[in-house]
């Protein structure tokens, strides 16, 4: 299909361009907006591959939640771009090292597909065929049967991280008056209202 090829090249070009803009944009908020654009195009590529469940989960989780929090933080920070540029050369060696390792890993993965084509087949064989089940159903069948312990383990790790973050930032400040709704609802008229018959000119 010409259309899907066109869509593929469109999505991937925009994704890469947006990725470049994320690290080169001068304004951090623009960086986050370009990051969102990159997420979107990645979701589009997922749809083209027939993985619509992953595509929409990507949009819901990353665009709808994670990037919103990024935006929150970045918008409220007063980031001085010039100061950040000064550290560029200082961080270049370690950044370049990490980049090289990632690039090599990518090359290894891609060439292993080319050298041993059956290795890709091993991965694909576990899922039911698309004619048998939609990919949402296929993912569910795998996640909740074969990989149930890994799945639950990942869930526990995330829960622990969440609890940890709350424990680290929670501090009980003394002297804060909180609204206790149960207490307010329980109050009766006699508890809070007292009517006194005050004679004129005497006061209470």
């Amino acid at each position: 299909m010409i259309l899907s090829a066109l869509a593929f090249y469109g999505f991937s070009t925009v994704a890469i361009a947006a990725g470049v803009m994320v690290i080169s944009a001068r304004n951090p908020v623009h960086s986050v907006l370009f990051l969102i654009l990159a997420f979107f195009n990645a979701a589009g590529l997922f749809v083209l591959m027939g993985a619509e469940f992953l595509a929409f989960i990507l949009v819901i989780v990353y665009v709808g939640a994670v990037a919103v929090l990024f935006m929150f933080v970045v918008m409220m920070l007063d980031i001085n771009v010039v100061e950040m540029r000064q550290g560029f050369l200082q961080y270049l060696p370690i950044g370049g090292l990490i980049g090289t390792v990632l690039l090599l890993e990518l090359i290894f993965v891609v060439t292993s597909w080319a050298v041993a084509p059956e290795s890709g087949g091993l991965l694909a064989a576990k899922a039911p065929a698309l004619t048998e089940a939609h990919n949402t159903e296929a993912l569910g069948r795998l996640l909740y049967t074969k990989y149930i312990y890994l799945f639950q383990g990942a869930g526990m790790v995330l829960l622990l991280a969440m609890v940890g973050a709350i424990v680290l930032t929670l501090r009980g400040r003394p002297g804060v008056r909180r609204q206790r709704i149960g207490h307010q609802v329980r109050l009766r008229r006699d508890d809070v209202v007292e009517i006194k018959d005050v004679p004129t000119g005497t006061g209470i």
Partner: peptide, 25 residues
């Protein structure tokens, strides 16, 4: 008539926040 219609709607409604946050900033 897509298979993940509910997710599509949920994704779209969760992105509605961007219009607001971009306008404010």
């Amino acid at each position: 008539d897509i298979n993940v219609g509910v997710l599509y709607l949920f994704a779209i409604s969760s992105m509605g926040v961007y219009g607001v946050i971009m306008a404010g900033w």
